[in-house]
Amino acid sequence: MFTLRSLEVFYWAGRLRSFSKAAEKLNTTQPTISQRIAAMEETVGEPLFDRMAKPIALTRVGRTLFGHAELLLRQVAAMERDLELNRHLHCRIRLGVSETIVQTWLSRFLEQASRRFPNMDFDMTVDVTPSMLIALQNGEIDIALMLGPAVLEGFTCVKLKDYPLRFYAIPGLVPDELLTYQKAPTVPILTYPRNTYPFDYLRELVFQKTGQPPRIFANSSISTIEKLALDGIGVALVAAGTLGAAKVDNILQPVPSEIDLPPLRFYAFYPLGFGSEMLEELAAIAQRVASEDSR
């Protein structure tokens, strides 16, 4: 009655509640999605979607078909996994990743993922966690390597690695070479953007201790933070091991500080259900590479 491809199109349109998002997910066009859904509705004799709803919603018949479609697609995916057919399938994964991981072990992850899935292509988005959370829930990315943990309905997360937060600066920038709470409102601190954990936590902590907010120069680019720190603009607050100059040329020095912040905790987030089998394998690869990176 229906081809597997038609069921897959219907499944993703129903899950994402959008023909356009289903088209992006399946690397096709919205008219193609609409045509397949229309053909399925003609076969069933009833609408599968309420197109007047915002966003679109499955009808009663659509919900019934959705349950059967998911079951069939899961069985096919299990067969492909058992026969290792998915290893050779050509697919595109939309990957969201935090820059801390870009600066540390992302290349090794991509290398091992490509070895496991030779025909897998990656569309990568480097962004902050709040933005990636929204993109993940909207179906705009398939898997995200970002800060956590977080409880997202319909998603799971796998622990990757903790990164201690450290202060770095050129020698002589911080008086007496110790960054205290009292110095934080006067010495610029170069760190991650607003609405991220380091920015918000640091601001609140210093404000509680001194009654004044710290001077924070926020930036989403670690390389930019590093350049500003090298130029003596301020003290960099980043995950340990992410600054090239601090690791190689020894120009930026760790700055002792009485300001103690919890580490950055990274997780792999991906949706549950059909389509998660390959994402689960990618999360396991990320977990293994992150573990190796800490040795």
Rank of each mutant, 00 (worst) to 15 (best):
T191M: 06
T196R: 03
P175L: 01
N195H: 09
P188F: 06
L179N: 08
E226I: 00
F199K: 03
P193H: 03
L230K: 00
Y201A: 12
Y192F: 08
Y168P: 08
I189S: 01
L179I: 08
D231L: 14
T210K: 06
G232F: 12
V174M: 04
G234P: 08
P171M: 02
Y192T: 13
R194P: 05
K209M: 15
D200F: 03
Y192N: 11
I222R: 02
T196C: 00
D176R: 06
R203Y: 11
L178V: 09
P214N: 12
I216P: 11
P175T: 00
P214S: 13
K209N: 13
P185L: 12
I225A: 06
G172E: 13
Q212E: 15
Y168T: 10
P213F: 04
E204W: 04
D176A: 08
Y168E: 11
T180S: 11
D176P: 00
F207N: 15
Y197L: 14
I233Y: 10
Y192E: 13
G232K: 05
A229P: 07
S223C: 03
Y192S: 15
I216N: 06
P193N: 04
S223Y: 04
Y201M: 12
R215Y: 14
P185I: 08
V187Y: 00
Y192K: 06
P198L: 10
E226H: 00
V235Q: 05
I222Y: 04
A229Y: 05
P171H: 01
N219K: 03
A218H: 11
Y168V: 05
I189G: 00
V206N: 11
